[in-house]
Amino acid sequence: MELFLVGIGTGNPEHLTLQAIRALKAADLIIVPRKAGKDDLSELRLDICAEVAPDVAIREFDLPVRDLAEPDYAKRVNDWHDAIAQVWMTAIDGAGRVALLVWGDPSLYDSTLRIAARLSPAPLMTVIPGITSIQALTAAHAIPLNDINEPVVITTGRQLRDAGWPPSARSVVVMLDGECSFQHLPPDEIEIWWAAFAGMPQQVILSGALGDIGPEIIETRARARAAHGWVMDIYLMRRSEKS
């Protein structure tokens, strides 16, 4: 079996690379996950397939639910990934060239590669990079990711909440943050650029001083989640040089 992990950006068909389009067209089967309460995500994948690879067979499958009762976080995630690998194998069912569409890029805060490593027998795997949500964020705001000769830290909401601002960092990108963890920071001298559904038709962006715009981001995010049943958001924060 050949497995193509195809980065699809944020779900906008215009974000697909030529390499991604060719891989989807050449596949014998495209497998599409369904996640409870997030039908829009599978529909976006199906729309992309219909537009760029209408003649390729598609097989949908239900994603297992993570066991939130398991207190050990690492075990909870590992068990979940094992279960996902099993349903992948069932969905693939002996197909030769198989493609799986991955939000953003399979390399950045994504578990697709870890799940694929659990498949048996191991497939011949090709990873096709896609536009990341970080690129979509900076493009939406028309800003660079970093200042001249300045490093950037990419972290999660959980890390920001538990550990605070990363030491020695001036620019911080925060992903996978369902709690608006910037609320735990002293807002003085921090600018924030926030986007929900970056690069998609329903994109929403806000920016400004964290102390001024933070409450509006929280309210806007809640409305977007209520309207769509889910929300994908990301933000960049930068401290002033004197802070």
Rank of each mutant, 00 (worst) to 15 (best):
D147W: 13
R161F: 11
A136W: 00
A140S: 07
G157L: 09
Q135R: 12
W103M: 00
T90G: 12
R158H: 04
P106A: 03
L124C: 13
R97F: 00
T112W: 05
D162V: 00
I115F: 04
N146R: 14
E150Y: 15
P129A: 08
L100R: 09
I115R: 15
L100Y: 12
W165A: 01
M175C: 14
A122K: 05
V98I: 01
G164V: 09
T90D: 15
T90A: 07
H141P: 10
D82H: 14
T126Q: 08
S107A: 06
E179I: 01
P151M: 13
I154T: 07
A140R: 07
W103A: 00
R114I: 02
A136G: 12
W88N: 03
I143P: 02
L113M: 06
P106Y: 01
A136I: 01
G178F: 11
V152A: 08
L124T: 15
P166Q: 04
P151C: 10
V127M: 02
V102F: 02
I128Y: 02
T138C: 06
V173M: 09
W165V: 03
V87H: 07
L160D: 09
R114C: 03
W80P: 06
Q159H: 14
L100E: 09
R158F: 02
V98A: 00
P167F: 08
A169V: 06
G104A: 07
R158E: 03
S181G: 08
M125Y: 07
G94Q: 05
W80R: 04
S181P: 15
D162G: 12
V87T: 11
W88V: 11
T138A: 06
T126F: 01
L176A: 10
G157W: 15
L113G: 01
L160N: 05
D162Y: 02
D82I: 09
N146L: 14
R158I: 00
R97G: 14
D82E: 13
S111T: 08
L145H: 05
L160S: 02
A122W: 01
T156W: 07
V127H: 01
E150F: 15
D177W: 15
I128T: 05
R118C: 04
Q159E: 14
T132S: 12
G130D: 04
G94N: 05
N149L: 13
L113I: 08
V173K: 12
T112I: 10
